[in-house]
Design a protein around this nucleic acid. Structure first.
Ligand code: FES
Ligand code: FES
Lengths: 144, 144
DNA sequence: TATAAATAGGATAAATTTGTCCGAAATAAG
DNA sequence: CTTATTTCGGACAAATTTATCCTATTTATA
């Protein structure tokens, strides 16, 4: 469904969100530990999230990654997915035709479109805040 | 969503179905041309589909791949996907946790489960026959 | 039986994704 | 200003997926 990089990115963003609630910045080391991911690879993904404006970074001593608390409810999962995997999952044909076009549809177009739109809506409606609260409350987990 | 191999496998199975309707066997060359895929790679995928019992192969002169016409309505897309990509898309966690477990759910578990089940139902309810008819009628296409 | 046509399968190569390493640049604190 | 800390960014390595090539095996027909 999502690439490994995207899975790590989503989990990292959620963890950063939980910490930003308490005004804490976190670095790649703490993030990788918390989401059970390779640290250096995770750092690369964080760079991409910064470049796309999903999270903010502060260099130097006492630096780290954070998300403006006021934005937590506005940043949706879709922004994270888009930043890492692009928009292919939203727009691409399920069978890999060059374009998904209702005028030249693949055999599963109609059925696939429904699923894809549901996924799109879910990602666009789910905020980092909501997911972070699930983790903070102990109802959800970022690692097994 | 699906691997390239799976995309090719689905399209190949649909094309074989359209030809089996007319009692014709087809080989990797014709299939690859029809679905716009690399021929040798497609041949490998066909081997997997044969091994999993999704399609039948006949070796030697006048051989090729076919699907029993009586089974066309019974063979579902899920069988093809399962044969090539396995069951991870049905059972795996959307964020890559080792297991998808409602007792130790990832932050998106509840929302993801809905999408995943819709996809599962779609794949389990859609027959090769139905998709092949779409192609034969000219309503759907296997290549752009 | 000989021949041609066709799938099966192993070895290999190319491309992409995933993952590591290390030095450069920035920044807070002493 | 110096030092310690931390992100940034490029180069590199490993693993996986995608793709190619060639030979063996099978089978219908002449
Ligand atoms: S054309 Fe394949 S999903 Fe739209
Ligand atoms: S635990 Fe992640 S989808 Fe179920």
């Amino acid at each position: 469904m999502f690439s490994k990089a995207c899975e790590y990115g989503i989990k990292a963003a959620i963890f950063i969100a939980t910490q930003s609630y308490e005004g804490k910045r976190v670095g790649p080391k703490a993030i990788a530990k918390e989401i059970d991911s390779p640290q250096a690879f995770t750092a690369k993904i964080l760079q991409a999230l910064v470049k796309e404006g999903v999270v903010t970074s502060v260099k130097g001593a006492y630096g780290g990654f954070e998300i403006d608390r006021g934005l937590l409810s506005q940043i949706k999962l879709a922004a994270v997915v888009n930043a890492i995997d692009g928009d292919h999952i939203y727009k691409g044909c399920g069978l890999g035709l060059h374009t998904c076009d209702a005028n030249q549809p693949c055999p599963v177009h109609n059925k696939f479109e429904v699923i894809r739109n549901d996924l799109k809506n879910m990602l666009e409606q789910t905020s980092l805040e909501e997911l972070a609260l699930g983790v903070k409350s102990g109802a959800a987990f970022l690692r097994v």
